[in-house]
Design a protein around this nucleic acid. Structure first.
Lengths: 237, 237
DNA sequence: GCAAAAGTGTTCTATGTACACCCATGT
DNA sequence: ACATGGGTGTACATAGAACACTTTTGC
């Protein structure tokens, strides 16, 4: 029980939200080598007696000032390539989190900055290259959240309750980058009982007018049967 | 970079195969505390400079004598509860593997035994209780493999090529525990090109006769569009 | 001939999509 | 009045399930 190899275990978190009608992820700017000045997913080392998910939430709060108490935090997968950190062996358990309307991030003492980046801008020309293998992690996390919307109502995590079905539909449209038929979407999410529970009152109409919508909160069920499939996923067939 | 907490990182492997028309998983019997005499998933500690997946394959071979060179080995998820091992903090990266027709397992020096157990018998009365949190891991692994068959042709990993479509269908029926319509299944897996490539020759008819079937090998594509859904999954709707 | 498995054809039903249409509000 | 988003109704196309039916083998 004594001479077992002992490795560093870390967590990285991809915290998604929607900013200016675009899917965005929270990044921190490093201010020490390696990758000094580069942007990276927030994260850090797991303490000796700390649950892994708790470490993810703690590091997120320390480095960006954003709490995930209300948001979802789920494990994505573990990245264990021996060379992924040039300094030493670090096995990282990556997580995905979602926040509805997070406050402005504040860079912690270790970081030179912290801000949300539109996911599409990160890989694009002029976007920041990410440190370590975080480009890979972010790509996996993005595909994960897109796919998750197909089978669950996790989209509600992007909305502060109470919310309207129109707001929920806009989450899908932003995350997937495609338009959905409003009427059909309405039926799909209201069809299975327990997904959404109606709330007293109605939303006020937008600046452009329109009929005030029914307000909802997330219900006890989250699984979508049948799933709502992306066009892009269907097209592969 | 120096005083980072260092934890033990382990892997556990759920190696599935089909024995006697039942879904079976490979277990080893412990012969030292804790859980002395109990059955557990094969696994062990990740070495300092070793990729995680490699550690899983190595430990599997050391403890059971079964190589996974031909079979699939994929990461499932990571279990990091601080109390999951009573001795010390161990974070375990669980994997799922599939073997077509593995040789008889041979218990390694650390183990009192190694054998395949029908998955249904493990949780049942008279079945062995599993050590650590391996019941949970096995439950997750079982659901994972069942769900994987819906969206991919991973079922081919249970068959030694060349195989017939009937053999492939029997994999689905055993893993899911439900009957599938032979004709519809045939069309589903042959409908998308690239999933299965026909091979020279035909299978010999079984003892009970029957028309000899076309032989196939796994093709370059593995994704099923549209998916083949279980009844049990549909029923939840 | 009979049983059994492979493979094809066909019908029926369910479900998703597209789109028309009314409702309720702001300007 | 008109634009805008909410919500409902409906017709059409399509995909999957159920099942009949032919083919090819062993006994």
């Amino acid at each position: 029980v004594s001479n077992r190899p002992r490795l560093s275990v870390a967590t990285d978190v991809a915290l998604f939200t929607i900013r200016d009608d675009r899917l965005a992820v929270l990044l921190v700017q490093r201010r020490s080598p390696p990758f000094d000045g580069a942007w990276a997913l927030p994260g850090g080392f797991v303490e000796e007696h700390e649950p892994v998910a708790e470490a993810a939430a703690r590091e997120l709060a320390e480095e960006t000032g954003i709490d995930t108490v209300d948001g979802h935090l789920e494990q994505l997968r573990t990245y264990g390539d021996p060379d992924r950190d040039p300094r030493m062996r670090v096995v990282s358990v990556a997580h995905v989190a979602v926040a509805a309307q997070p406050p402005e991030p504040k860079a912690g003492s270790d970081a030179a900055g912290a801000r949300f980046w539109a996911v599409d801008d990160i890989a694009a020309n002029g976007g920041p290259g990410l440190a370590f293998d975080h480009s890979r992690i972010l790509a996996d996390a993005t595909e994960w959240i897109r796919s998750k919307l197909e089978h669950t109502l996790m989209a509600t995590a992007f909305c502060r309750p109470p919310f309207t079905i129109g707001e929920l539909r806009r989450v899908y449209e932003v995350v997937w980058g495609e338009r959905l038929d409003a009427g059909n979407f309405q039926r799909k999410v209201t069809g299975t009982p327990g997904l959404l529970v109606p709330t007293e009152g109605r939303a006020t109409a937008g600046a452009a007018g329109g009929r005030p919508a029914q307000l909802f909160r997330p219900g006890p069920r989250t699984r979508l049967h049948p799933p709502i499939l992306r066009r892009s996923a269907v097209d592969i067939a």
